[in-house]
Nucleic acid binder design. Structure first.
Length: 555
RNA sequence: GGGCCGUUAGCUCAGCUGGCAGAGCACCGGACUUUUAAUCCGGGUGUCCAGGGUUCGAGCCCCUGACGGCCCA
């Protein structure tokens, strides 16, 4: 028996023992009178002002995170969502409930009822008169002093991470407060929170590849949204003058430090506003969030001290590229010419890159890393931005900005294009570019949206904020998966081997007398694309061979 | 894509020049009425990431691969 099984079995036996004693190890309810924070506060108040004449006993609940058993008295550390405190179990005070200790393990949920006292050492404590098991744990918690360090396990079993690591717990509390504060900020400015569809006939509104799914009843292919932009603008057209949506966006692309295939955005649209108004909204909001949540507008990130206090620097995009890369993009308005200049300064480009993509690479390589202090990069080439309005005086540019903090893009905003004729032309340009540059992502033409704009759309300022990026910034994390509770991960080695072994067993049970070569082929076909791509032929053959031998021996 | 580092008990980690696989926590058995990572006595529970090679002998050396971390593109 492995040690893992032993832990489980010992605890499972305790569950049985409790049942034999007529105790439900998983009772439906328990009446608690105080959260741990409330109990601590109550005791502090009593200590200050004296105990009431008729003192109530309290009951608190929580997970057992520590046990110090001294024979006829035991001290338990209890933790609930509000805090941690000590409970004392004395044999002479708890009677039969004292026996519960024999079936108690770290990680169990317990309720205790009794007086609030300070022990000899001054520790706030519930002096239990009764105790009840509220939920037995069958697995041991991670190591109590060092916590859980293994990154894979932390991310795959976030609950264990949260149990073991206080900083992780606090980080996700902060994220939640961040979202709540953004809502308050937008609500306070008269914005209406709306909900728009996630399943769409056309995934438009951004340059990204969508996830594809199937609606059975309609026999229709649907796409998960890659932005909330187009529907929110339809709200503006409909007369909801200020709207926003906080929600999940899905983009079918790779995973890395700053990209999870599903992420949270806050998009907002405001009629009669332009991108200058939106800049001021963003800097005001982020400064306010920092003051409210962190108590300061300066934050430490990646070794830099960043001040998010408004106003943020405005930096013209063309000037920025000129300064940081020495290239005037207006002097190289075609892809071949720009690519040539970029090669000269050592930026990796390909024959197929579109002009817009080249500019994007220049930005990413040469400009963005320098945008450590909060900066709005202003006025983007029209090729990169089909939904923004042309700049009235800068030919070839649109009124668009992106906000950067710590070299990270945190928002994207435009003065929205509200001319339906030009909007159609811009979408058509995107479709043409898609034909020319098959590997790149372009926006898609959405007829329903164009119809909406044709009804007449007011001048509008629009904004998209990456909530995950903000959460990273505010919590000092360098990867998005540390601010997403359950991030997507590729398969672990164990999971891969398990998938292979399962496929082998499946084929073996179906066709036990196959030749070996045919057998490998069938197993390989059974594997998911992800596993098939990564398992080596040698590894597959070894595992199949082993299973083959095991089976022959069994027969 | 490239470089460096790592993968050993449930968890956190040692393991020297190749020679019986280790510690702390956790766990199991026992003692203990005021502990705070309780303490004391006894017990090591393992696919050393996988496979192959060298060797009398491999956790350690070599090769291939998987997974992960960091750095660079």
């Amino acid at each position: 028996m492995t040690q893992r099984d032993e832990y489980f079995q010992v605890r499972a036996e305790k569950v049985e023992r409790l049942r034999e004693q007529g105790i439900d190890p998983f009772p439906a309810r328990y009446r608690r009178t105080h959260t741990i924070a409330q109990a601590l506060e109550l005791l502090a108040r009593w200590t200050e002002r004296g105990r009431p004449a008729r003192e109530r006993s309290v009951s608190v609940t929580g997970r057992v995170t520590g046990v110090r058993n001294m024979g006829r008295v035991a001290f338990l550390d209890l933790r609930d969502g509000t805090g941690a405190m000590q409970a004392q179990l004395r044999r002479d005070l708890t009677g039969a409930d004292f026996e519960l200790l024999k079936s108690l393990d770290l990680g169990d949920f317990l309720g205790v009822r009794g007086r609030l006292i300070h022990t000899r050492t001054g520790e706030p404590t519930v002096e239990a008169r009764s105790a009840a098991m509220l939920g037995k744990a069958l697995r041991p918690p991670p190591e109590k002093w060092h916590g859980l360090q293994d990154v894979q396990q932390r991310l795959r079993q976030r609950e264990a991470d949260l149990i073991a690591n206080d900083d992780v717990r606090e980080r996700f509390v902060l994220r939640s407060k961040l979202v709540a504060a953004i809502r308050r900020f937008m609500d306070g400015r008269g914005y209406l929170e709306v909900e728009t569809p996630i399943l769409l006939n056309v995934a438009a509104g951004a340059n990204a590849r969508p996830f594809v799914t199937q609606h059975n009843a309609l026999s229709r292919t649907l796409y998960l949204r890659i932005a909330t932009e187009l529907h929110l603008k339809r709200c503006i057209i409909g007369g909801l003058d200020r709207v926003y949506e906080i929600g999940r966006i899905f983009r079918n692309e790779g995973l890395d430090a700053t990209h999870n295939p599903e992420f949270t955005s806050m998009e907002s649209y405001e009629a009669y506003a332009d991108y200058n108004d939106i800049m001021s909204l963003v800097e005001t909001m982020v400064e306010g969030l920092a003051s409210e949540l962190l108590g300061t507008t300066t934050l430490e990130y990646g070794g830099a001290t960043i001040d998010v206090k408004a106003p943020w620097r405005r930096l013209d995009l063309r000037t920025a590229i000129l300064e940081h890369a020495g290239i005037d993009i207006d002097a190289h308005r075609d892809a071949a010419s720009l690519a040539g200049r970029m090669r000269e300064i050592g930026v990796v480009v390909t024959q197929e890159d579109s002009w817009g993509r080249l500019v994007d690479k220049l930005l990413g390589d040469k400009v963005e890393p320098h945008l450590v202090q909060p900066t709005f990069l202003v006025d983007y080439p029209v090729e990169m931005t089909p939904l923004a309005k042309r700049h009235p005086s800068k030919g070839g540019y649109v009124e668009r900005f992106e906000g950067f903090v710590a070299g990270m893009e945190v928002c994207n905003a435009f003065t929205e294009l509200n001319d339906p004729i030009e909007q159609r032309r811009r979408f058509e340009e995107q479709e043409a570019l898609r034909v020319e540059h098959a590997e790149e992502d372009f926006d898609r033409l959405d007829e329903d949206f164009l119809t909406a704009v044709e009804y007449g759309m007011p001048p509008t300022g629009g904004l998209g904020v990456g909530i995950d990026r903000l959460a990273m910034l505010f919590s000092g994390q360098s990867t998005v998966r540390e601010v997403v509770l359950f991030p997507h991960l590729s398969l672990s080695q164990d999971e891969m081997f398990r998938a292979v072994d399962a496929a082998i067993q499946e084929v073996l049970s179906r066709l036990p007398t196959l030749s070996q070569d045919a057998f490998y082929e069938l197993v390989r076909n059974d594997l998911s694309a992800e596993v098939a791509a990564r398992i080596t032929k040698g590894e597959l053959i070894r595992r199949a061979m082993q299973a083959f031998e095991d089976q022959s021996q069994a027969i």
